[in-house]
């Protein structure tokens, strides 16, 4: 149990670090192009997709093995 908790905490910290990298220079600059894909500006696709992906990952980390 203790170990599981620790692993979970470490994964969440990893999410935090990945998130910090995703939502910062230079990755943002990379996607900051004047273009539209599927009718949506590239930058918005990138930010919202990454955002949602992080949330899903967090949910997976939290909810996994949490069911008693």
């Amino acid at each position: 149990m203790e170990k599981q908790q620790r692993v979970r905490g470490q994964r969440l910290v990893a999410i935090f670090i990945v998130g910090c990298l995703l939502f910062n220079y230079p990755l943002l600059q990379l996607f900051s192009v004047n273009n539209i894909i599927g009718g949506i500006p590239v930058l918005y696709i990138y930010v919202f997709t990454a955002w949602l992906a992080l949330i899903i990952l967090m949910a997976l980390i939290i909810e996994r093995r949490d069911k008693k």
């Binding site: 979970r8 998130g19 910090c20 939502f23 955002w51 967090m58």
Partner: peptide
Amino acid sequence: FLPIYLGPTLMAALWWF
């Protein structure tokens, strides 16, 4: 306008600690 909401998302990952 988005950093104001991305910040809490990132911090939520650290809430655990």
